[in-house]
C-alpha cells in the first residue's frame, strides 16, 4: 500500500520536474508585470507586442518556411531513397544505411561546422545554406519512418497489379503509396519538428541577418529576456502540440505507429 503510494508520488515528482519549467514560462506570458517573480494581473499585452514585433515575426516566417521546404524536399528524396534502399541487396543496403546514420549519430556541432566549411566555398551563408543543411539532417528521419513501412508491406499485391497489366507508376500510386502514406506523413511532420527545433546546425550555417526563432531567442537570452519571449514559448508549445495531434489523427494511432526523435536506424 505504502509502496503504491510512494510510486505515485515518485511519478508525480518526475512530472513536476518535466513540466513545471514549461508551465512557469506559459504563466509568465500572461503576467501584467515585467517582473518574473511578481504576479500583478492577467494580460495579453505580451502577445500583442509579440505579433507586433517585426524581428520576431520575420524569424517566425523564416522558421516556418525552412521547416516546410526542408521537410517537403527531404520527404521526396527520402521516399525515393527508401524505395531504392528497400530493393537493394544486403551489402548495398548496409552501405546506404551506414551513410544515413552519419548525420544522425554525429554531434550536431560537427555536422554544422562541416556544412559551414563546405558552404562558404560556393554559397553565401543565408536562407539557402540553412535550407540545404536542414534537408541534410531531415532525410535520415524520413527514411527511418518509411523503411519499416516498406518492410512490413505485402509486395505481392503490387506485383499482382503489375501482372494484371497495371503500369509500374499506376500500381505504385494505387497500391504502394496509400500503404506508405502514414510513414511518409510521419516522416514529413517529424522533419518539420526537427527543423523547427534545431539550433546548433542553423547557428553554424546561417549568415548574419538571417534568424530562425531558435537563433533569435538565443541572442535575446544573452541580452536579457523580454516578456515577449514567454509569449513566444507558449505559442511554440501550442504549435508543436497541434502538429503532434495532427500526426496522430493523420497516421492513425495504432500500436505500431511510432515515430521517434531519437537518432537511430537499425
Amino acid at each position: 500500500m505504502i509502496a503504491k503510494w510512494l510510486g505515485k508520488v515518485y511519478i508525480g515528482i518526475v512530472m513536476v520536474f518535466l513540466y513545471a519549467p514549461i508551465a512557469v514560462l506559459i504563466a509568465l506570458s500572461f503576467n501584467a508585470s515585467k517582473s518574473r517573480v511578481l504576479w500583478t494581473g492577467f494580460t495579453f499585452r505580451w502577445y500583442r507586442t509579440l505579433f507586433g514585433s517585426s524581428a520576431i515575426m520575420k524569424a517566425f516566417g523564416t522558421t516556418l518556411a525552412l521547416a516546410l521546404l526542408s521537410a517537403a524536399t527531404a520527404s521526396l528524396i527520402g521516399l525515393f531513397a527508401a524505395l531504392g534502399i528497400y530493393s537493394m541487396r544486403k551489402s548495398g543496403r548496409r552501405v546506404m544505411l551506414f551513410f544515413t546514420n552519419i548525420p544522425l549519430l554525429n554531434a550536431d556541432i560537427v555536422t554544422g561546422i562541416a556544412l559551414m566549411l563546405w558552404f562558404v566555398r560556393f554559397l553565401p551563408l543565408g536562407f539557402s545554406s540553412i535550407l540545404l543543411a536542414h534537408v541534410t539532417f531531415n532525410i535520415p528521419y524520413v527514411i527511418l519512418c518509411i523503411l519499416p513501412k516498406l518492410e512490413t508491406m505485402d509486395i505481392r499485391q503490387f506485383e499482382a497489379a503489375r501482372d494484371l497489366g497495371a503500369t509500374t507508376l499506376y500500381a505504385f500510386l494505387r497500391i504502394m503509396l496509400p500503404g506508405l502514406m502514414p510513414g511518409i506523413l510521419a516522416g514529413f511532420f517529424m522533419a518539420v519538428t526537427m527543423s523547427m527545433d534545431d539550433f546548433v546546425i542553423t547557428y553554424f550555417t546561417k549568415g548574419p541577418g538571417v534568424n530562425t526563432l531558435s537563433t533569435l531567442i538565443y541572442g535575446e537570452i544573452r541580452k536579457g529576456i523580454k516578456p515577449e519571449m514567454y509569449a513566444l514559448s507558449s505559442v511554440l508549445f501550442l504549435l508543436v502540440l497541434i502538429i503532434l495531434i495532427a500526426v496522430n489523427i493523420l497516421t492513425g494511432s495504432k500500436e505500431d505507429k511510432y515515430i521517434t526523435k531519437n537518432k537511430e536506424i537499425g
Binding site: P21, L25, D197, L232, L236, F237, V240, L244
Partner: peptide, 11 residues
Amino acid sequence: MWMNFILRILA
C-alpha cells in the same frame, strides 16, 4: 522533448 530546446533552457 518536442518543446523547443532553447526555450527549455530559458525556462
